[in-house]
């Protein structure tokens, strides 16, 4: 039990993983409730374009990925407002542009192993700078989510009513867009660009099966994400598996089990109720 924590890289992985498990579902619940679950995919794929651009121009790839994600997130918001009836199209447009750009730029990257590490992440190869960045970003995201908790709730519930009730919808949406972009880009480095959107959605989907209020659903989402992260890190360490993929697969298996158990329980209850 203690052996895994004897290694510095594993201790770092746990710190970073748990912090990310706190912030990803906080952003994820609003994304899911706004019916924009695919936004994580679009942003994480676009982050690859930023990573490639960073590696080509010899700037920090995480910084490149943050800039690319912010531009992509703002692009999604602008297209969403221009064509509100087909809002989901904005995600497909930005994702295609991001993947296209990443594809072209990756051809100029000399160290392809470095670029590939962003696809599935490398949570056990976190540098001190990256850990500090995750700590800083996680604390900022948590603080902003805490202070905008009620405004984000109302906007997710009914954006028009929120505006009429006096909520500064544009400002809150802008802040949330930046928050999402920064969370996705920093998470893409650690758990992988191809996996991060699952971490936004799966803990929320699990929590929604048990939550008896919005507050409870948020708390359960974080608990599920922390559980997936810790279990994933342990299992991947002892079974020599890729951590990012293991974390997500545990989440998917957990969700499937919850749905099966819920449906069996519901049918038992139905049979009991029948005279």
């Amino acid at each position: 039990m203690t052996s895994i924590l004897e290694y510095d890289f594993m201790r770092r992985a746990f710190v970073v993983g748990i912090l990310l498990a706190f912030i990803i579902p906080c952003v994820g619940i609003i994304v899911v409730l706004k019916r924009l679950s695919m936004i994580g995919d679009a942003l994480s794929h676009t982050s690859l374009a930023g990573v490639a651009a960073g590696l080509v121009m010899s700037i920090n790839p995480i910084l490149g990925s943050i800039i690319a994600c912010i531009i992509a997130a703002l692009g999604i918001e602008i297209i969403r407002k221009k064509i509100p009836k087909y809002a989901e199209m904005s995600i497909a447009i930005i994702m295609s542009a991001g993947v296209g750009l990443a594809g072209v730029l990756s051809g100029f990257v000399k160290n392809s192993a470095n670029f590939n590490s962003f696809l599935f992440g490398s949570i056990v190869a976190i540098s001190n700078f990256e850990m500090l960045l995750v700590i800083l970003i996680s604390c900022t995201v948590m603080l902003i989510f805490f202070f905008l908790y009620k405004e984000l709730f109302y906007i997710a519930l009914d954006e028009r009513a929120a505006r009429l009730a006096g909520i500064p919808v544009k400002t809150v949406n802008f802040v949330f867009t930046i928050l999402t972009a920064v969370t996705v880009s920093v998470a893409a480095r650690t758990v992988g660009a191809l996996i991060v959107s699952s971490l936004m959605v799966i803990p929320v989907a699990c929590a929604m099966q048990f939550g008896k209020s919005y507050k409870q659903t948020v708390i359960y989402s974080v608990c599920f994400a922390v559980f997936f992260m810790v279990a994933g890190l342990y299992i991947s360490y002892y079974q020599r598996l890729k951590p990012g993929g293991t974390i997500v697969l545990i989440g998917v298996i957990c969700l499937i089990l919850i749905l099966i158990i819920k449906s069996i329980t519901a049918s038992i209850m139905l049979t009991k109720d029948k005279p």
Binding site: Y154, D158, A161
Partner: peptide
């Protein structure tokens, strides 16, 4: 304002009646 889609938007929203009503006091 109660929109035409007011009922549908809350249909699967994970919130209690109390939380939904409280939302309109947030700006106050």
């Amino acid at each position: 304002y109660l929109p035409q889609s007011g009922l549908q938007s809350a249909d699967s929203f994970p919130a209690t009646a109390e939380e939904i009503v409280m939302a309109n006091l947030f700006s106050q």
